[in-house]
């Protein structure tokens, strides 16, 4: 009653979907949590009717990471495979080995991690190693059959593009995908973390890196290519934009509409060409 009954892996019609999950980090407090995009990936797998979702995390299990990992289990699945890897390890070989054993049709993951390097290269490396096609920026999976999947890719402005990809394939999910369901405390606490040993290969390249808290990026200065002193002075003394807007009072509706139209055209949000 409590949890949705998991589809048994013996079920032949079920499509095995591996979801790669990482430990996220809250943007303001840095506290461990389920990574936003990974959670959406899991949501997508759980919402897929014929999917047999396999949760996989490669990393360490400790007091810090456990609540974050368990919060994925709070979304309903009963088990997560935990590939033990030390800090600073290159998880790629371990993941590749495990995924080859598991043999999923689809691998879903967020487009980049919220902690560590967060370069977003891992899915690409994995796809390259496995020789699978990869689609990034997924918004929805429309349908999956034995040999292919039809998916929607998110484009800017809420636009979507329909793609069909041959299976097996790797799909990365970004923030346009549906929001992950709530993680419930009870199932999160009861879920199993099945630990698996795996080969460890350290990521030595990172040793040469300097990692610091993000500095605020300098605001780009408007470079004034003025020929005269007066122009340069005027540019420097000009009021910055946005300090108090323009208020049009006592005008006709037509004049008002003109003013609005002008701004809309300037901002380029109006598409009159189609």
């Amino acid at each position: 009653m409590l949890l949705s009954t998991p589809r048994s892996s013996a079920d032949k019609t079920a499509i095995k979907v591996a979801v790669l999950l990482s430990v996220g980090s809250h943007p303001l407090t840095g506290r461990g949590r389920r990574a936003e995009q990974d959670a959406r990936a899991l949501e997508m797998a759980l919402a897929l009717p014929q999917a047999d979702a396999q949760l996989i995390h490669a990393g360490r299990l400790n007091d810090e990471s456990e609540p974050a990992l368990r919060s994925y289990l709070g979304m309903g699945p009963q088990q997560m495979t935990l590939i033990q890897q030390p800090k600073q390890a290159d998880v790629l070989p371990a993941l590749e080995k495990h995924l080859r054993q598991l043999g999923p049709k689809l691998i879903l993951c967020g487009s980049r991690a919220e902690a560590g390097e967060g370069s977003g290269l891992l899915p690409y490396l994995l796809a390259e190693k496995l020789g699978w096609p990869l689609i990034s920026g997924l918004a929805a999976i429309e349908s999956v059959d034995g040999s292919s999947a039809t998916v929607l890719q998110a484009l800017p402005r809420g636009q979507r593009r329909r793609l069909r990809v041959k299976l097996p394939a790797l799909l990365t999910i970004d923030s346009a995908a549906p929001v992950a369901r709530q993680s419930a405390f009870g199932p999160a606490r009861r879920g199993q973390l099945a630990e698996v040993d795996a080969p460890v290969q350290m990521d030595t390249e990172q040793e040469g890196w300097e990692v610091q808290p993000a500095r605020k990026r300098p605001k780009r200065l408007k470079i004034i290519k003025a020929t005269s002193a007066r122009d340069r002075f005027k540019a420097a003394a000009a009021k910055s934009e946005g300090s108090g807007g323009q208020v049009l009072k006592d005008i006709t509706a037509a004049e008002g509409a003109d003013a609005v139209l002008k701004l809309l055209m300037e901002e380029g949000v109006l598409r009159v060409s189609s």
Binding site: S25, G30, R112, G116, G118, G208, V211, Q212, A214
Partner: peptide, 10 residues
């Protein structure tokens, strides 16, 4: 890096 919370210099 780290979703915009770290700077990685290399």
């Amino acid at each position: 890096g780290a979703a915009g919370r770290k700077d990685i210099t290399r």
